[in-house]
Amino acid sequence: MARFTKTMKSLAATALGLALAGAALAGPAEDELVIETDDGPVRIVTKTAAPAFLADTFDTIYSGWLFRDDTTRDMERDDFDNPAMVFVDRGMDAWNAAMGANGESCAGCHQGPESMAGLRAVLPRVDAESGKLMILEDYINACVTGRMGLEKWGTTSDDMKDMLSLISLQSRGMPVNVAIDGPAAHFWEQGKEIYYTRYGQLEMSCANCHEDNYGNMIRADHLSQGQVNGFPTYRLKDAGMVSAQQRFVGCVRDTRAETFKAGSDEFRALELYVASRGNGLTVEGVSVRH
């Protein structure tokens, strides 16, 4: 906030009417994220060199964490203060519960949740067997229906988001490393096209806000690069967990457009593309945003 105030002053002093070159105005915070956890400190990469395919666009990619205010950033520094941990605990209860049609549990097949370490960092990915593009929600539902004989969980249901929280946390601190070539390539291209399409009556694309204008204020909102390495995130405004799929719905709705559905082919491809723009940042597991 202090940085922003300074910017506003220098802005007023600038010759008015000058075309203001966006990103230089109010950048990401100068800050480092080391999270205190039960297993000791975990360093999070919130700022790193942009992946090669973005070379003409960005030098540096930033986690959304660097665009939030001091109080919100602080809540993510210690698991004890992170409201998302409640949902991780709920996910842990579900993990151990004998909830399957024949009493199966996640733990029965996978042992502890730490067996999921690394998964979140490479998703979405193309499933080798089916050739389908899979987000974490798809893997979870494959077990819920195929191996436990239950009705599929809603993409944005509480059950689903609790489990996303638990499994994502297992990859905390690992670099996002989503494959964009081979069988992923055509899904990636589809996601890229969506990213640059100007939807809705406001005719705005993801890139208009998160590429052209990150660092700027859209009214009181400090625009980030729209990275998904922090997801699922505890959103203070909603007092609950928000998945990347849900965030996409919200952002497209804000352009006065007909959104795609959470979990649709389009938004799964978009998640692959957006995740790949964050290759090199680390998974935050469960982050805090406002």
Binding site: T197, E203, E258
Partner: peptide, 14 residues
């Protein structure tokens, strides 16, 4: 002339 025009901010089709 919009791409996926919506019904205001409802997220539904307009």
């Amino acid at each position: 002339g919009f791409v996926r025009p919506g019904d205001g901010f409802t997220g539904k089709a307009g």
